[in-house]
Simulated scan of single mutants.
Amino acid sequence: MKKILCLLGVAAFVTIGVANAQIEKGNLMVGSDLGSSLASPSGSATNSGLFGMNFGLNKGDGFNIGINPKIGYFVKDNVMIGGVVNLGFSKAPNYNGAAKTTSYGIQALGRYYLNPGEQGVNNLLKHGRFFGEVNAGFAGFNTTGGNTTNGFAFGFGPGYSYFITPNVALEGLLKYNGLVGGGNTTYRHAIGLSLGIQVFLPSAKVKSIVNDPSQL
């Protein structure tokens, strides 16, 4: 019962807030994307797909999975800086048997949310915001018996956040991703499409809960 009450408390806390105050200075963003966020090697199955997971149903098919946890802090209204961790794994058949690819990355992250007047539309469905996102840092792709690249990664592109509650947003993000560095492939790039969910929290409230968990 205590666990259930705690979960209900967290859910209630997440939904507390004033509309249009999610991206104000001092707020935190915590969440994750599921999908491609790094440039996939040409010809491989490392692209984690629209929902971050693909499992082949035919005999001999492989699978891939990818997740990109994010955290950010709003240094001013509409402007967020933070970081993202990239984690991915895939296994796909090839002429040598099964190729396994692992991807990883730690990158700085930045976002700018457009004001309603800047969006060109009247704040789609009244509950969303367009944004631009950029990232840069260290990352790599390594395929057993195949192409590898480890070095500097970067990406940029537009996204859209649809707020299903005042503090929780579903997101779609389309980005150009590049990776340059050492290995037998020095540069690769791709277009990545991902979906995700983000939670926006006032930092003062987060600190208060950390200091006194009984508030949940």
Rank of each mutant, 00 (worst) to 15 (best):
S48V: 09
L5W: 08
N123C: 07
T185K: 11
E118M: 09
Q198H: 14
S32C: 11
N123S: 13
N150V: 14
Y112A: 02
L114V: 01
A45C: 08
F51V: 15
E171A: 00
A169Y: 01
V84S: 10
S44R: 08
G97R: 04
L174S: 09
T102V: 10
N68Y: 13
G183Q: 05
G26C: 00
Y113P: 01
N78H: 14
V18M: 06
G82V: 05
V199K: 01
S103V: 09
K175M: 15
F55D: 12
V14K: 05
G31I: 02
F163W: 08
K2Q: 15
S42F: 15
Y112I: 03
A99S: 05
F51N: 08
E24K: 15
P41K: 15
T101I: 07
G178V: 04
A21V: 04
C6M: 11
G31T: 04
I4D: 13
V180Q: 07
K2S: 14
I4N: 09
L114A: 04
H189D: 14
R111S: 03
V206R: 06
G181L: 06
Y187P: 04
M80H: 02
V84R: 10
N68E: 11
V10H: 06
V79W: 14
F63H: 10
V85K: 08
V75P: 00
P213N: 03
E133G: 04
V85W: 13
C6Y: 13
G157T: 05
A99W: 00
G43I: 14
V206A: 11
P166Q: 12
G183A: 06
M80S: 11
K100R: 04
S103M: 13
F141L: 14
I16D: 09
V180C: 00
F51Q: 05
L28C: 01
V168H: 02
A11I: 10
S203K: 05
F138N: 07
V168R: 00
N27Y: 00
K100C: 01
V84D: 06
C6D: 14
S90M: 01
T148E: 11
I16T: 15
G117C: 01
G159K: 07
G26W: 01
N47T: 09
Y160S: 02
T102R: 06
S103H: 08
F89E: 08
N94I: 05
S44A: 11
G88V: 09
V180K: 09
P93Q: 12
A45P: 01
G83I: 06
G52D: 06
S32K: 07
Y187H: 11
G60I: 13
P41C: 13
G146M: 07
L109P: 01
A12L: 14
N177Y: 12
G151T: 10
N54L: 06
L201K: 04
I16C: 12
V168Y: 04
V85D: 09
R129M: 05
P116Q: 00
T165E: 11
N47R: 14
Q119N: 08
F163T: 11
Y73H: 05
P93R: 13
I23H: 02
V199R: 04
E24G: 03
S208E: 15
A39Y: 09
G146V: 03
P69D: 15
L170V: 12
